[in-house]
Amino acid sequence: MAHFALVGPPEGRRPRLGRPVSSRSVASAVGGVVLLLPDGEPVSARRASLRARTAMLPLGRGLVRAGLAEGLVAHVVHYRTRGWNGADADLAADASWAVEEAVRRYGDVPICLVGHGFGGRAALRAAGHEAVGAVLALAPWLPEDDVAAEPEPVRQLVGRRVLLVHGTNDARTDPELSFRFAERAKKANRETCRFEVHSDGHALRQYADEVRALVTDFALGALFARPVARPVTDAMAAPPPLGLRMPLAAGFGGSSRR
């Protein structure tokens, strides 16, 4: 009989919020919070990856700069471990804790979850808290419905604005699985759209400027009712599959508001 080592966070290890992502001090009047959820691994009890956390910082800094007038604050979530770990869904549990902690610290302000890879899956899972108004999943790791014990849930997304972004050449997380998830999510919540980044990979480096512009446009629009770029409006309004396979055009964030 095979024996499998137990995985999961060692007893006593706790999640936490990193320091506010900004060189400026936190504004006295916080108007909204972005929680940045780094990538992880399928199964692991190792400490969360510093590299994955660091990779979220440029996105966070850009969001804080763009949302300075509204008092936007961003934190990178420090997981207890880097593993999703099956039914324990440790990263999703840590994301849910982070939402509660943000509410405790900042009170009744809107929260946006932004996750990459397994962090994208954690963001989608943790969206059910009433304080969460928007969710962005970048290259999310999602299971195949036909091999999962249960389909990945979507009901927690109702009433949220949801954006998925995936590179078409992602060799680590299957973009077709995020499309199938988006199809189910759209049926439960029409405020769902998905953008495809042609020929980009898991890290979304090839069109990093466009991805950051899209995330900023979407997040600030959802948190502070700012007008969003026309492609985002079109993607939300378009029926599947058009609004779930919206191409992210080169130069988005420049001329895309026309």
Rank of each mutant, 00 (worst) to 15 (best):
1 M>C: 08
5 A>H: 11
7 V>E: 11
7 V>C: 05
7 V>F: 13
9 P>V: 03
10 P>V: 01
13 R>E: 06
13 R>K: 10
13 R>T: 14
16 R>K: 12
18 G>F: 02
25 S>D: 15
26 V>E: 11
27 A>F: 05
28 S>I: 11
31 G>V: 05
35 L>D: 01
36 L>R: 11
37 L>G: 06
41 E>T: 15
42 P>N: 07
43 V>M: 04
47 R>N: 10
53 R>T: 11
55 A>W: 04
59 L>W: 01
61 R>G: 00
63 L>F: 02
65 R>E: 14
67 G>A: 02
73 V>L: 02
74 A>G: 07
74 A>P: 13
75 H>T: 01
77 V>T: 08
79 Y>N: 08
79 Y>C: 06
82 R>T: 10
84 W>M: 09
86 G>C: 01
89 A>H: 07
93 A>M: 09
97 W>T: 14
97 W>S: 12
98 A>N: 09
100 E>V: 10
103 V>R: 15
104 R>T: 12
104 R>H: 05
104 R>D: 08
105 R>I: 05
106 Y>G: 01
113 L>S: 02
113 L>N: 06
114 V>Y: 03
116 H>N: 00
118 F>K: 02
120 G>I: 09
120 G>R: 01
123 A>G: 04
132 V>I: 04
133 G>L: 10
133 G>Y: 00
136 L>E: 08
140 P>R: 04
143 P>Y: 06
144 E>Q: 15
151 P>N: 04
154 V>G: 01
155 R>H: 14
160 R>D: 01
162 V>F: 02
164 L>N: 09
167 G>Y: 00
169 N>G: 06
173 T>C: 15
174 D>H: 11
177 L>M: 06
178 S>L: 04
178 S>H: 01
181 F>M: 03
184 R>V: 00
187 K>C: 11
188 A>K: 09
195 F>N: 10
198 H>K: 12
198 H>T: 10
200 D>C: 04
201 G>D: 12
203 A>N: 12
206 Q>R: 14
210 E>F: 07
211 V>K: 08
214 L>H: 05
215 V>M: 02
216 T>N: 04
217 D>L: 07
218 F>P: 06
219 A>K: 11
220 L>T: 08
222 A>G: 04
223 L>A: 04
224 F>T: 10
227 P>V: 13
228 V>E: 07
228 V>A: 10
228 V>C: 07
232 V>W: 11
234 D>C: 12
234 D>K: 15
240 P>C: 10
242 L>Q: 15
243 G>L: 01
244 L>T: 15
244 L>V: 13
244 L>F: 08
244 L>S: 14
245 R>N: 12
247 P>V: 04
248 L>A: 07
250 A>F: 10
252 F>S: 08
253 G>M: 12
257 R>G: 09
257 R>T: 14
258 R>L: 15
